[in-house]
Design a protein around this nucleic acid. Structure first.
Length: 583
RNA sequence: GCACCCGUAGCUCAGUGGAUAGAGCAGUGGAUUUCUAAUCCUCUGGUCGCAGGUUCGAUCCCUGCCGGGUGCGCCA
């Protein structure tokens, strides 16, 4: 891990030069912004010179005089206003390359202090199909969980499914009055949805139907045996379908602790918060008000109206005694903190829910929860009109529909390319490429930006897409296939050609990138890196023939191929994308 | 009204204090006796929404404005 090592050396150089560092300043080495200047660079001299009011170039020279890096670096220069530019030696790159082909973690260091992290993502609703709106949470959450696990954290994934709520009044009423058993067997969720829609329409035409539904809901909440059985069956049928979807997406959860799991904890939780004075009764509801511990502009329980700060409380129990999702969330936090000893909880949930989470986190902290809670927000997927897909009323595109279409397009492409593969092989490859394309389309995007849903973008197989990365992987495997497994890579390495050097450099950076993703919980940084790696490999592949080379050159190039193969497979794996040997 | 997010090439988007702002698509001109061309290389394309400010240096930080989206006491 060159960046970390070089940063350590730089800090040591400051000490050796007798330069006292101001508080809050720690010199850092980063990957060079432009490879013309070297591999790594540091702006420390310029930043510090500003604070110390000295000449930046002179300061840089002072540091360089004490910088002990000859084992790794072949050239150190001071450029421009005081940039420190470092160029790694070919030997250092070769050493790291040797690590990548041997190490279980392809050269990525493990975290020093592993944490227990609960990742809460996907969270679909019972009796509803998964649609494109679930893409972001599901793929981002899965990728972050995989990455955290890979760098050494203990990760617990939990699918907090929406299996309890007011919609069950309508579903139960519909189940009793108009369910078609045949259709239910054929496609359970589809039938549940059409029943729900029919009842929903009926309530609008006739208000008495709404009353009946409310009655069914109350009965369910009071433990009525028949309604409870119907509810359980709905949950069972939906989970069965969900497992199929997740199976197709290669996503697994450690737990499916839905909202209903916490039902019994809600009343005691509210009572406890009242007793501790965290919550109070207001207009018949139980709410949490501001405690004035932070500045008003940072207080999630206050809102400014005209010239004064007005209360914006978090309601944890309705006037009619019902609980809300804030209540469930608080109970869930308790469980994760106490039963799982979570150090951190990551909520991969859309940006519109920011205020909700700020309130819930603040309320939990007031109850003494010390677990670090992070809302990993993401932007909305917009419809063609530039507005959010409405999950309640509007029709959206089903998630499986998107995946199936992607697989179909990949299958068509496989036929066109015709690499002499059997139909069964093509089917298998199309699954990997199609599924990968959809995941990559999502994960290569900055999670905070909104984007318009577009079939063509989601399903594209051209340019910066999953097949491009997979093709690079396939090219590495193809070379080894030609060797019939008779390769024995040796430590005899010599990186000489520019294309070899560029590739070795890119490969070494994976050690840094894998960790950087988690700084800001952004899988797109990994996607960007993998794209660059694939691009660098493709260039190398065109410039440096492997099989026709000999001796050390051949061994070096084979090692580069093997390293690329391993990093691509590992990196794509962290995005939740599988690889294929041929395509 | 207030808060949060967004505004970068014709289109879709990266980049968040550093050196000449990058990709993909679209457009252009080349490369294939191949280690899989689902590839590589070339060219074309930008007042980084607008106006101030901080800084040696701002697409990035601060302030104001314009435009789009979302959220704000008993839905989830």
């Amino acid at each position: 891990m060159f960046r970390a090592v070089l940063t350590d050396r730089l800090q040591a150089a400051f000490t050796a030069a007798g330069i006292e560092l101001p508080e809050g300043f720690s010199p850092a080495v980063v990957i060079a912004s432009d490879t013309r200047f070297g591999d790594y660079q540091s702006n420390a001299a310029m930043v510090l010179a500003k604070q110390l009011k000295t000449n930046p170039r002179a300061l840089a020279q002072q540091i360089v005089d004490k910088l002990a890096v000859t084992d790794l670096v072949e050239k150190v220069t001071i450029d421009g206003p005081g940039f420190l530019n470092l160029t790694l030696s070919a030997e250092a790159l070769a050493q790291q390359l040797a690590v990548i082909v041997k190490d279980d973690h392809v050269g990525v260091p493990q975290v020093k202090s592993p944490k227990t992290i609960v990742v809460d993502f996907s969270a679909p609703n019972i009796a509803k199909p998964m649609h494109v709106g679930h893409i972001r949470s599901t793929f981002i959450g899965d990728s972050l969980a995989r990455t955290a696990r890979f760098v050494g954290h203990k990760v617990i994934t939990d699918n907090h499914v929406g299996d309890w709520g007011t919609q069950f009044g309508m579903i139960i009423h519909g189940w009793k009055t108009q369910l078609d058993q045949e259709k239910l067997k054929a496609d359970p969720i589809h039938e549940l949805v059409s029943v729900y829609k029919a009842v929903n329409a009926a309530t609008k035409a006739d208000e008495s139907v709404l009353e009946v539904c409310k009655g069914e809901l109350v009965k369910l909440q009071q433990g009525d045996a028949e309604n409870l059985a119907i509810w359980k069956e709905c949950v069972r049928l939906t989970l069965e379908q969900l497992e199929k979807v997740y199976g197709a997406l290669d996503i697994k959860f450690d737990h499916y602790l839905g909202e209903s799991f916490f039902n019994d904890a809600l009343a005691p939780l509210v009572a406890d918060m009242l007793e501790k004075g965290i919550a109070t009764i207001s207009d018949g509801a139980t709410v949490v008000f501001s405690d004035g511990s932070v500045k008003p502009e940072n207080d999630p329980f206050l809102i400014r109206e005209k010239d004064e700060w007005k209360a914006a409380p978090c309601i944890i129990r309705k006037g009619d005694g019902g609980f809300l999702y804030a209540t469930t969330d608080l109970a869930t936090i308790d469980y994760r903190a106490n039963e799982w000893k979570a150090d951190e909880i990551w909520y991969v949930v859309g940006a519109p829910q920011q205020l909700h989470f700020r309130q819930v986190f603040a309320a939990a902290q007031r109850r003494g929860v010390t677990t670090k809670m992070i809302h990993i927000a993401f932007g909305s997927i917009l419809g063609p009109d530039g507005k959010m897909f409405k999950t309640r009323s509007g029709e959206t595109v089903g998630l499986l529909e998107v995946i199936d279409e992607a697989i179909e397009r990949a299958r068509t492409a496989a036929d066109e390319k015709d690499q002499g593969l059997s139909d069964a092989e093509k089917d298998e490859i199309a699954k990997i490429i199609g599924g990968g394309a959809v995941k990559y389309a999502e994960l290569s995007q900055n999670r905070l930006t909104d984007y318009k849903f577009s079939w063509d973008k989601m399903l594209s197989l051209q340019g910066n897409t999953a097949p491009y990365l997979l093709n690079a992987y396939v090219r590495t495997r193809s070379i080894f296939r030609k060797l019939d497994g008779t390769v024995a890579l040796t430590g005899d390495l010599a990186i000489t050609e520019p294309a070899e050097r560029a590739l070795a450099m890119k490969l070494a950076q994976f050690a840094e990138n894998a960790h950087d993703i988690l700084d800001d919980h952004r899988p797109n940084l990994l996607a960007n890196y993998l794209y660059e790696l694939a691009n660098t490999y493709h260039s190398f592949y065109e410039a440096c023939n492997v099989l026709r080379s000999e001796g050390t050159v051949r061994n070096t190039r084979l090692t580069l191929c093997e390293a690329t193969s391993r990093v691509l497979k590992t990196g794509l794996g962290l995005l939740g994308i599988q690889t294929t040997e041929r395509m």
